[in-house]
């Protein structure tokens, strides 16, 4: 007797085959949805780490001495606060009311933690222990007489325990802050005579 292999019945019939095909397609599309090619594209997000460089940063530091087109710092007063090497007592651009307002806003963000809203040098960070040395008040004689370029220079290069703010505050904003510091100094040494006559009535009875 010879063993003959039974003829294999086809497992799937017409309609079933179509149904199986469709379900396979559906399953495949489900799997495809799990891919993240579009979510995570082959590019770096800001500050993303990388193995490409030894320091692990995807953001590359500039080569020292790099100057971008149109960014050569030819205006020495604007960028250094000095004229012919002497600390300047003038602004590199006219200060408008809008500039003062911007100066106030930037001062309140970047300077008040130490210098306080009035410039007394008793800001919250100083009260928490930044006291060796504590920042001076803007209202002492030395700083009342200091040229405005001095304040710009301190913000740009740092001074004593104070770090440079050049990376955090733009050049123009540093000048606007300097202008606002001048306004603060005026505010602490103003008399009733400095107030325009029509406004004096509004202050009556409000003196501290």
């Amino acid at each position: 007797m010879t063993l003959t292999r039974a003829r294999r019945e086809p497992r799937w019939q017409g309609g079933q085959r179509a149904a199986a095909g469709v379900s396979l397609l559906l399953l495949a599309s489900c799997l495809a949805a799990c891919r993240l090619d579009m979510h995570i594209q082959p590019r770096f997000d800001p500050y993303a780490p990388t193995d490409l460089f030894n320091d692990g940063r995807s953001e590359r530091p500039m080569v020292p001495g790099t100057v971008a087109h149109g960014h050569l710092r030819t205006d020495t007063l604007l960028y250094t606060g000095r004229i012919n090497g002497v600390v300047a007592d003038e602004f590199p651009f006219p200060i408008t009311a809008a500039d003062l307002e911007r100066g106030r806003e930037r001062f309140n963000v970047y300077c008040t933690p130490c210098h306080d809203y009035t410039g007394s040098g008793r800001g919250m960070v100083v009260q928490r222990g930044f006291q060796h040395p504590a920042p001076p008040s803007y209202h002492i004689d030395r700083l009342m007489k200091a040229p405005v370029g001095h304040f710009f220079e301190v913000m740009t290069n740092g001074y004593g325990a104070m770090y440079s703010y050049a990376a955090r505050v733009s050049v123009e904003d540093r000048w606007r802050i300097a202008a606002y510091i001048r306004a603060l100094q005026l505010s602490q040494h103003a008399t009733l005579d400095d107030v325009p006559a029509p406004e004096r009535g509004a202050l009556a009875g409000k003196a501290p």
């Binding site: 970047y110 933690p113 990376a167």
Partner: peptide
């Protein structure tokens, strides 16, 4: 507690897409 403004550390939030993380220097 300290009254520090968001922009003291997140310096680029007003002018760029990315808010900016403070550098260690900050």
């Amino acid at each position: 507690d300290d009254g520090i403004d968001c922009r003291y550390c997140h310096t680029s939030v007003e002018k760029s897409a990315f808010a900016g993380l403070p550098s260690t220097e900050t």
